[in-house]
Simulated scan of single mutants.
Amino acid sequence: MPDRLDAPPCNQREVELHMHNPIQLEISRRDLLISSAATVAATGVAAGGAAAQSAGNTMNYTTKMSFTVNGERRNLDVDNRTTLLDALREHLHLTGTKKGCDHGQCGACTVMVDGRRVISCLTLAVMHEGDQITTIEGLGKPGDLHPMQAAFVKHDGFQCGYCTPGQICSSVAVLEEIKANVPSHVTGDLTAKVAVTPAEIRERMSGNICRCGAYSNIVDAIVEVAGTKA
C-alpha cells in the first residue's frame, strides 16, 4: 500500500474549484435524527437476523434448575426471566413471601439465601441453582413458631401483616450478621465486636418498610430474641 507522501498532488484546477465551491457540511437536526434512526433500525435487523441464523433458528427460553427451599429439594423448568419471588409464589405456591413494590424498595419479599438476606423480586431464579433458600414458611409453623415469630406476636410487631414475612426473615438474618461481626454504617468501632443496639437494628432493618408504623415494636422483638435490653 503506497504511503500518503507518494500520492500524486492534485492539479491546480482542482484546488481552485475546491476553494470556490467548499463542501457543504450543514445538516438539519431533523435530518440527523431521521438518518440516525434509520441506521439503528437497519443495524438491529441485521444483527437479529445474524443471531437467528447462528443459533439455527432455535433459542432456549426456559431453564431446568433445582434448589433447596425450606429443606426440600425443588426442581423447576422456568422462563429465564422469572424472578426468585415469582418462582416461590407462582411455581412453588409459597405465598408467605409477599410482592410489595416489585422494585426492591419495600423489603416485603425478603428471603434468606444461604443464610443471607436477599430481595427476591430483584434476582432471577436461575441465578440460584443449588442454593439453600429459606422463606417465612421454613422458619416456623403454628404451634412451633420460630423465636422471632413468637417475639413479633408478643410485642405486636405487625398490624396489617403484609410486610411481616419480609420483616421476620430480615430480622433473623440481621442477628446472624451481627453475630458474624459484620459492621454497618452506624458501627462506631470497627475493631470491636458489634453489639446489638437499637441503632444497629434500625440501620440494618431500614430496607424493610412498615407502612403501619410498627417500627418500635419490631425493634423490641429483635432485641428480645438477641437477649439484650432495649
Rank of each mutant, 00 (worst) to 15 (best):
210 C>G: 00
184 S>Q: 05
162 Y>E: 12
216 S>P: 02
172 V>T: 03
38 A>E: 13
102 D>K: 12
114 D>I: 13
83 T>W: 01
131 D>N: 12
52 A>E: 10
53 Q>I: 15
183 P>T: 05
118 V>W: 01
216 S>E: 08
190 L>Q: 10
31 D>E: 15
98 K>E: 02
122 L>M: 07
161 G>C: 06
94 L>T: 01
148 M>I: 06
15 V>Q: 06
67 F>A: 10
221 A>Y: 07
203 E>A: 14
207 G>T: 01
90 E>W: 07
99 K>C: 02
109 C>G: 05
163 C>G: 04
23 I>A: 14
105 Q>A: 15
204 R>T: 01
218 I>P: 06
55 A>K: 09
166 G>K: 09
131 D>H: 12
68 T>W: 00
177 E>Q: 14
68 T>L: 00
121 C>L: 08
70 N>K: 04
86 D>I: 09
55 A>M: 10
149 Q>R: 02
104 G>M: 08
174 V>C: 12
212 C>Y: 01
176 E>M: 08
124 L>I: 09
144 D>E: 15
220 D>H: 11
39 T>F: 14
158 F>L: 14
140 G>F: 01
73 R>M: 02
129 E>M: 12
145 L>V: 00
131 D>W: 06
145 L>M: 15
51 A>E: 13
46 A>Q: 02
151 A>K: 03
106 C>V: 03
154 K>P: 06
217 N>C: 08
185 H>M: 11
4 R>K: 12
220 D>Y: 08
104 G>R: 08
92 L>K: 02
219 V>W: 00
139 L>V: 05
30 R>I: 13
61 Y>T: 09
50 A>Q: 02
92 L>W: 08
34 I>K: 15
64 K>I: 03
82 T>Y: 02
148 M>R: 03
170 S>Y: 11
195 A>I: 08
16 E>T: 13
71 G>W: 04
44 G>N: 09
71 G>S: 01
22 P>F: 10
107 G>H: 00
114 D>E: 05
230 A>K: 13
89 R>N: 08
199 A>C: 10
65 M>R: 07
166 G>R: 10
19 M>H: 15
92 L>D: 06
54 S>L: 05
211 R>Q: 03
152 F>R: 06
36 S>D: 03
166 G>E: 09
224 E>H: 11
121 C>V: 06
67 F>T: 04
227 G>Q: 10
111 V>P: 00
104 G>W: 04
131 D>R: 05
116 R>G: 01
26 E>W: 10
200 E>D: 09
60 N>G: 06
147 P>G: 07
149 Q>G: 01
179 K>G: 15
116 R>I: 09
29 R>C: 08
37 A>H: 09
71 G>V: 07
14 E>G: 12
19 M>P: 03
175 L>V: 13
14 E>R: 14
11 N>Q: 12
199 A>T: 14
